[in-house]
Design a protein around this nucleic acid. Structure first.
Length: 632
RNA sequence: GCUGACAUAGCUCAGUCGGUAGAGCACCUCAUUGGUAAUGAGGAGGUCGGCAGUUCGAUUCUGCUUGUCAGCUCCA
């Protein structure tokens, strides 16, 4: 007798092995129809996997966590099935589910274009309609290798699998794919599919390998859900900072300087507000600010290790026959600044901050608006400290980071990146540094992911990643521990014992890059910045020419109080002026007509709520100044 | 850098099966002086990304090139 325990506590008993699908059928036909996978003792499994012993069973619908991945994984098999039948000879590589969809990598002479999409979709629909059962079978490794011998990709995948375990395959009609599963019970479970795009992707993500063709697609249990998804994506694209930056006249990048952004007066206003805020917070947190040159001689970069580890990303120039480099990082300059004099242990931790403009040769294909550029301003800082001070300083930086990120209500993901292949220093130094970062994270109970091999060449790092409007994540803040630079530059401080000691160094950036951070902010607020950041905070809209003088008077008063204000004196109707101010996403509009002028008042319209009525200027001013100061 | 797609007025886009281009918005002028998301009329604006080739003739076809977009790789 097998006992199946359901989430409501009830228990179903079966004489012999049963499948989750059968259990669902026993409960109700409708349930059996809507369920897509099963969680058996906590593991997501196919509905058709036999349950041979007493188990906890949770039936998963598409909406339940993990179920969409099963649904999309089967969808990817259906797409591979369709592609191999339409383009015989196509070799399959890998085809996983991803968030909101799935992809499959193909190796074929046929070059996929958008025009192929409807064809492939049509074939997929046929496969769905045929409702082929999906069957799992396993082979021992040697037989599995023989089975996939005509496909070098699958052969490589099987080769890497464990010798002692049977290797599973899934079959639907004449299509078979190597796959760990789980899967839907039959192809008919998938309802609507849509191929979204095609792009190149290297086999196993290695640029030395062959580039395959990757078809991105998605699938849903209903057309309405697909439509909603597509609508959401289109809405999200309207928040794209490249579009908004241009529309709101904040910043742009021209063909004359790929990856080298221009900031216009309104963009500079946001930038300067951010920097003002940054300066205040850093003063309070005990940082001194420095500025180091953009160009320094080549020898410095040999000394720092950048020549050996970072040369490909650097720009060079010559001055009076001497070789110079344009800085890709601020640290070597920061080293020189530290070395200018002798420090006592009493000076440590020494926190020096720098808004440093760095230039990096990024691959042309990697450029992306303000998110990935070739010159950007890091809100960098270098903290020189004793080993004893490490943890406390890391914690201090994390707290400052959280303070700043919470001001913007950002959700972020934390990663701990460890020793890369091409790195400086000993394993022991790396271990100490990695442990220090890890301990700091754990002492703060922070959730983080391990990102092995992704540290900087001089040390491990904690990275803070924030999502853009369509869910791509970008690294912003970073905290990097470095034992190498102090050694390379022979940094020392005088200890209490009267001997010279070597400090440890911490590199960190909170915004990461001002440019990227502004891009993230633009998308986060969809261009409707909070009042303190808004390039124009108030727009005064006189109803007619009669109020022009009064409007100017109000403007002068607000300007004198450091409020960023503009007047719209054009002879347009009020509706038109409001519409335009609204599209410019200006937080406050002041409408003045004869009534307001007579009573010495202003009619206030708030961007998000509309008309809030008339008040005296002072009242309005108190309101907006409070909002600016509180940064709400 | 790689794979694919794209590039027409400041912006969003239409168009020419090869005969040097058009709309809306924005801009300028004039009229209009209005009450919370588009007043009307007129005007100006493009060597159709750049360089070659094919052709009597190229914005259109071909090659190269620059840039952009999506993804891969890389990264703040």
């Amino acid at each position: 007798m097998i006992k199946i325990k359901l989430p409501d506590g009830s228990i179903k008993e079966y004489e012999k092995a049963v499948t989750a699908l059968e259990v669902a059928s026993d409960i109700s036909k409708g349930l059996a129809k809507s369920v897509v996978a099963a969680k058996i003792d906590g593991n997501v499994r196919s509905l058709t996997d036999p349950i041979k012993q007493d188990s906890d069973l949770l039936l998963l619908k598409f909406e339940d966590e993990g179920a969409d991945h099963v649904y999309r994984h089967t969808s990817s098999h259906i797409m591979a099935h369709a592609v191999t039948s339409l383009f015989p000879g196509t070799k399959l590589a890998i085809g996983p589910s991803i968030n909101n969809g799935f992809y499959y990598d193909f190796d074929t002479d046929h070059i996929f274009t958008d025009e192929d999409f409807p064809l492939i979709e049509k074939k997929m629909e046929e496969i769905i309609k045929a409702d082929y059962p999906i069957e799992r079978f396993t082979l021992p490794k040697n037989e599995a290798l023989d089975f996939v011998k005509n496909n070098p990709y699958k052969y490589e995948l099987v080769t890497d699998l464990d010798e002692n375990e049977d290797i599973s395959f899934y079959r639907q009609n004449d299509f078979v794919d190597l796959c760990a599963g789980p899967h839907l019970p039959s192809t008919g479970k998938v309802k609507v599919v849509k191929i979204l795009s095609v792009a190149g992707a290297y086999w196993r993500g290695d640029e030395k390998n062959k580039m395959l063709q990757r078809l991105y697609a998605t699938s849903f249990p209903s057309q309405a859900m697909l439509d909603e998804y597509i609508y959401k994506m289109e809405e999200a694209k309207k928040r794209d900072h490249r579009k908004l930056g241009k529309e709101l006249d904040l910043y742009d990048i021209f063909e004359e300087g790929p990856g080298f952004p221009f900031f216009f007066p309104k963009g500079m206003e946001i930038r300067n507000q951010l920097i003002d805020y940054w300066r205040r917070e850093h003063k309070r947190a005990g940082y001194g600010e420095i500025q180091t040159p953009i160009i320094l001689n080549e020898e410095l970069w040999h000394r720092s290790g950048h020549w050996d580890h970072y040369k490909n990303n650097m720009y060079f120039t010559t001055i009076d026959e001497g070789n110079y480099a344009i800085k890709p990082m601020n640290c070597p300059g920061g080293m020189l600044a530290f070395k200018r004099r002798m420090y006592s242990y009493r000076d440590l931790p020494l926190r020096t901050a720098e808004l440093g403009l760095v230039h990096r040769h990024e691959l042309s294909g990697a450029l992306h608006g303000l998110m990935r550029v070739r010159c950007f301003t890091q809100d960098d800082a270098h903290i020189f400290m004793t080993e004893d001070q490490m943890k406390q300083e890391i914690v201090g930086v994390i707290n400052l980071m959280e303070k700043i990120y919470s001001l913007f209500n950002f959700e972020y993901k934390v990663e701990l990146s460890t020793k890369p292949e091409n790195s400086m220093g000993t394993k022991e130094q790396w271990d100490i540094a990695e442990n220090a970062l890890q301990e700091a994270l754990e002492s703060l109970n922070m959730k983080y992911e391990l990102n092995p091999g992704d540290g900087a060449f001089y040390g491990p790092k904690i990275d803070f990643h924030i999502q853009d409007s369509i869910g791509r994540t970008w690294q912003c803040g970073t905290i990097q521990l470095d034992f190498q630079m102090p050694e390379r530059f022979d940094l020392t401080y005088m200890g209490a014992d009267g001997n010279k000691h070597r400090p440890v160094m911490l590199h960190r950036a909170l915004f990461g890059s001002i440019e990227r951070f502004i891009a993230i902010l633009t998308e986060h607020y969809a261009g409707a910045f909070p009042v303190w950041l808004s390039p124009v905070q108030v727009k005064i809209l006189p109803l007619t020419d009669r109020q022009a003088e009064y409007a100017q008077k109000i403007r002068d008063i607000l300007m004198a109080n450091d409020i960023r204000v503009e007047c719209d004196f054009r002879s347009e109707k009020i509706g038109y002026k409001i519409r335009e101010a609204q599209l410019e996403k200006i937080p406050y509009m002041i409408v003045v007509g004869d009534k307001e002028m007579e009573n010495n008042q202003v009619a206030v319209r708030v961007r998000k709520v509309g008309d809030i009525g008339t008040m005296f200027l002072e009242e309005f001013q108190n309101r907006i100044v409070k909002e600016i100061n509180e940064k709400v």
